[in-house]
Design a protein around this nucleic acid. Sequence first.
DNA 1: GCCATTCATGAATTTTTTTCATCGACCAAT
DNA 2: ATTGGTCGATGAAAAAAATTCATGAATGGC
Lengths: 304, 304
Amino acid sequence: MNGMSALERIHLEILRAVARHGSLTAAADTLHLTQSALSHAVRKLEGQLGIAVWHREGRRLRPTQAGEYLLGVAGRLLPQLELAEERLGQFARGERGALRIGMECHPCYAWLLKIVSPYLAAWPAVDVDVKQKFQFGGIGALLDHEIDLLVTPDPLRKPGLAFEPVFDYEQVLVVGPGHPLRAAAYVQPGQLADETLITYPVETDRLDIYTRFLTPAGVGPKRHKTIETTDIMLQMVASGRGVAALPRWLVEEQSGKFDVAAVKLGRRGVAKRIFLGFRDADAEIDYLRAFVESARGHRADRAR
Amino acid sequence: MNGMSALERIHLEILRAVARHGSLTAAADTLHLTQSALSHAVRKLEGQLGIAVWHREGRRLRPTQAGEYLLGVAGRLLPQLELAEERLGQFARGERGALRIGMECHPCYAWLLKIVSPYLAAWPAVDVDVKQKFQFGGIGALLDHEIDLLVTPDPLRKPGLAFEPVFDYEQVLVVGPGHPLRAAAYVQPGQLADETLITYPVETDRLDIYTRFLTPAGVGPKRHKTIETTDIMLQMVASGRGVAALPRWLVEEQSGKFDVAAVKLGRRGVAKRIFLGFRDADAEIDYLRAFVESARGHRADRAR
DNA sequence: GCCATTCATGAATTTTTTTCATCGACCAAT
DNA sequence: ATTGGTCGATGAAAAAAATTCATGAATGGC
């Protein structure tokens, strides 16, 4: 007799409505159906289950033990279905979603935190996740739907992807207290030949200090150390263990906390522009578009 | 666009089957439907929700965020529905239920425990509950569906109810060590006029020692104390604080633990018969019938 | 480039749900 | 005790929904 699915949502709805309102007729009203429809539906269910759901005592419907049990199931499952529908509505209206943000720019993390905080408040149903490691690079992760948004300095043109500049800054050398370069107007590549350079642990061809400063001049630092976190990096620099390259705004923001100073890289300085990349197809997702716009609003941060 | 219930069981089934088997076609097989049916069903759901459930990339169906969410819902809800069906099947086959047993016979509790223990093992899906207080008496509780089974010495004939004798025993007087009656062949009502009688806390017209021994003879005990539990009662008797009336089998069973002895009440003794009452309508419930039969098998207990 | 396979789609068909009309039973108020 | 209003059950009819069938367009492995 069993095997096919007998238990449907409508059955649980009927059980619950009858329990709430006391009669089939009243339940039919709230479900916008006729008493007859409910009666037929229950009759069919009982036939398939092989058991009655109610004791029919006169005109009263008293749940059997099976009915009592089903009532419990209805009480647990129906709210979950209703919540699911509510949430799906939020998905449809672009109020709910997941924003998986990939970072290809280590120091931007501090900047990102400033964007994310008010964003989370404005979009309470959007979950934000930040990832930093990608097997096939940030662009690959974007195309593979591993992430939805990419924070990167390299807006590689690709069909299906869009990039928006969100953030300009100057990359500077960071030096500790009493460093000979501290008061210099700018530093030249050769002046780092005797220094210990501290960077994030990524390939050197993704580090601007190399690609746009040292490598073109054909020189390198005496030593090269890598450190994961910006705070520790600044602490190392402040204690004279080496020099680092970071955004000017970050250095200035942290100069109260650590005794460090910014020195221009080369005569003209090293200007950087950070982009937010996303898939064209996602451009119409409200909460994603809102994030990009909110980020663009923060471009002024550089001026701080 | 919302308002009516869009999310049905079949939709969750489809989502799950596609996730499991990789394609609509394969999912259609396992659901015993055609690929077309599934396609139409999903199309309709997506229309009602206002959001796509899958990204269609070539012939591949990759869940959208909404689809991913729905998949989670399916993973949680479908097993619950399946469990509910399984349980309802057990209800239908009489394997599962609740057996609410009412007791109108205090000392029978010890006997009941012996029945219940193997019964629970034999009927693992049946919940047994024992109640002792009833606003309108045990018979009333039975008729009101407050209990399903009544353990009682009074098989009050009523339409719709059936009673089965399950248990015979002799009610005896229990006396402590060194009590003058200890060696007597039997006790006569007048001999209790100077005793303290200890009973369960129920009305005297439900106590056999009164209705079938003291009251007919027009005498009473010097004092009457009530105690809830059998163990404490026996302890009181063993320490010479009074005498009590209990089933002979119970006294004999406990005589190793407490220094008490049984004395026949009157020359012919007081014979008791305990019945199990239930509603006629429930007679066909397998697990109830099984309980009654198992209880009847224990009638021999009296012989111990 | 082939070709088997995938999902989508419109129309036809089948199945299911729902309504309508009506019945017998119940119960409270008279 | 009678009765009027209400309840749930039921069979037949109608409406709606689900399912299939037949087919098309696109895809991706060989």
